[in-house]
């Protein structure tokens, strides 16, 4: 495959979920990403190109960052010239179906439920602890933008790394890439992030409550109550409404 088409595929994969639908999910974005390479692989053979396109228009869903790996593997398989059409079609179909779910689960736990909350906590925690400093006149507008910039940098470094290397490794090592991804031990990294996150959260909480001299007891009470309620599967939004009513009530009593 030509490099320019591979690069086009990589950039097109950012639009993977542009027409996400409940019927076949990411299928439109998937076909859109690989169509330049498919056109190159099948050249002027209109019929085979059509069959391949229809084949890739079927159901597909995975984590958007990990999809690049599957896209690369699909292209490698499509490019195999020695395999006959029927087996190739079967192979690709089972690859997309069987890899999408497990890789999506890895991506969901690592990116959505560990890395993003941690980056969010670091940025938001910094804002709460430094709010007085940020509020001062000496600190101009540019200083406020450091927090979101740090957040974007922190989060997107692994994100882009994953997208790019998943794609590249898929093209280079073919199906061995699955072994490589499982060898990275994302689970272990997730576990480390989890423990670091717990420590940082407790640190921010304690610092936040201690610096507010007026509401130390109230802060601790709010924390314990809401923590227990969330653990009992009460939604954060319900606690949010309860908190408003409670706080305004306290305002009248004070």
């Amino acid at each position: 495959m030509k490099n320019c088409n591979i690069i086009r595929t990589f950039f097109r994969s950012f639009l993977l979920q542009a027409v996400w639908n409940f019927e076949r999910m990411q299928n439109v974005g998937f076909l859109y990403s690989i169509i330049p390479c498919l056109k190159e692989i099948y050249g002027t053979d209109e019929n085979r190109l059509k069959n391949a396109a229809i084949r890739h228009f079927d159901f597909f869903n995975t984590h958007p960052y990990i999809a690049n790996t599957i896209i690369a593997l699909t292209l490698v398989l499509e490019d195999e010239k020695t395999v006959n059409e029927e087996t190739k079609s079967q192979q690709i179909k089972s690859l997309k179906l069987h890899l999408g779910g497990p890789l999506a689960a890895i991506g969901d736990t690592f990116f959505w439920s560990r890395l993003r909350p941690l980056c969010g906590l670091l940025a938001a925690g910094y804002v709460f602890l430094q709010y007085e400093t940020l509020n001062q006149v000496q600190c101009d507008t540019s200083c406020h933008f450091l927090v979101p910039l740090a957040f974007i940098f922190l989060y997107n470094t692994p994100h882009i790394f994953f997208r790019f290397f998943g794609f590249w490794l898929g093209l280079k090592y073919k199906t061995d890439v699955v072994k490589i991804i499982t060898n990275v031990r994302l689970q272990k990294i997730s576990e480390i992030i989890r423990i670091v996150g717990i420590f940082i959260c407790i640190f921010v909480l304690v610092a936040y409550i201690i610096t507010s001299e007026k509401y130390r007891v109230a802060g601790a009470l709010v924390f314990l109550t809401s923590f227990i309620l969330i653990k009992k599967n009460v939604s954060v939004i319900s606690i949010f409404w309860g908190l408003i009513v409670g706080c305004v009530g306290i305002g009248f009593l004070m």
Binding site: L121, C201, V204, V222, F227, I239
Partner: peptide, 25 residues
């Protein structure tokens, strides 16, 4: 009274967020 209540609310909101973070972690 309402302004005071909202001040307490603004103080308590981050605590709720931190509790939700800790619960999910």
């Amino acid at each position: 009274a309402v302004v005071r209540g909202l001040q307490v609310f603004m103080f308590a909101l981050p605590v709720l967020g931190l509790a939700s973070f800790l619960a999910s972690f």
